[in-house]
Design a protein around this nucleic acid. Sequence first.
DNA 1: GTCTATAATGGGATAGAC
DNA 2: GTCTATCCCATTATAGAC
Lengths: 216, 216
Amino acid sequence: MNSRVPEGSVAEEKGTSSPLSSPTQISTGFVESAASLFREQGYAACTTRDLASALGIQKSTLYHYIDRKEDLLYEICRQSLAELTGAVQATLETVDSSTAVRAVIATHLSIVLAKKDMFSVTLMETRSLTGARREKILEARLRYRNIIGEVVREGQLNGELRNDIESTYLSMALFDHLNWILFSHSLEGNHVPENIAEHYTRIYLEGAAAKPSDGN
Amino acid sequence: MNSRVPEGSVAEEKGTSSPLSSPTQISTGFVESAASLFREQGYAACTTRDLASALGIQKSTLYHYIDRKEDLLYEICRQSLAELTGAVQATLETVDSSTAVRAVIATHLSIVLAKKDMFSVTLMETRSLTGARREKILEARLRYRNIIGEVVREGQLNGELRNDIESTYLSMALFDHLNWILFSHSLEGNHVPENIAEHYTRIYLEGAAAKPSDGN
DNA sequence: GTCTATAATGGGATAGAC
DNA sequence: GTCTATCCCATTATAGAC
């Protein structure tokens, strides 16, 4: 798996204006190869040799591109959250507010299922980050969480969502739904992302119980 | 945190009749202390010194009780799955079949939320197990998954659950709901398990969307 | 059953040649 | 930009005294 890698090494980020702006240029193939390994083995259990050999290089060569192993994890989390947040915000700007929840679910799932390794690692390995980078990622995650929370609250105001359950619980449940799917999916195997997204949306919105109108 | 520890060291399990029978006696406090650390730091990042110091002993003393660090992880997973499976099976034997899904959700959540560290670790760190033990835990997990799947299918036959969505998706969604709650919960903080369980059950069964009967 | 001391291994990261 | 060689240190696990 020799995805050859271009320019640049990781620099310490200076005070940048936008949150999670790119502090560096590590090639995409590089980052995604790392995401795949981190997902399979876990970040801590994955050695620099593992990373290098997946790229067909020696581990010392790895350090031509990065300063430390953690750089890769940080890039995975940063890129994932930036992409997801951007996509959802773009969706919110174009969609009719009466179907915002539905639209956000669709956007989230399509983004996340397209890059399962990246998002799985972001979810599970953020705790392995240290210092300021960890804080940055946790903040970015919280920002995204707050966007979802806001969409849920507006959904309640619009009549898209029920009002007899606190928004906190609706948000939590939605988050569960959106996140853990990465694991179920890998376990279950051969389900097409589009189908999953459709069914998950219906189950979250309509519920799993039989309706009175159903036959029995 | 000196939970003093009694007898025994880990023996290799012989061919035992029942699945996941206890091959050893490591004290409960020991195992739960390890679960707490594994959850916070991750299994691979948690050192034997960390484990020992949480118990107020030297790391070499740890090896009086276990043969290897992995013993602790295995015990966490084994005990968790045994308890959960047992509790759900007991529930299924006593409950009316028309409310089995509801009852299983309640049982699952009460068990899992009472031992969050244990179950979080079981969910996230099974991959760190090796060899036969890993297989055993994966099998136990699958058995539990199949029990839930069966409950869902019977729920569809009974009219407890809707029939217009494949049971695979209903099971997957239920699993997501039941599992990921461990993480949401820790993030959100101060919600009482009973409340969470109640709301989660309602959202899964009734859905998050506003009903026609709602005031807009 | 707990300790001190230490062996043995493997990991992240660097030096410096090509 | 990639390599070989190596440093340094943390980690798992053991030895053996008390």
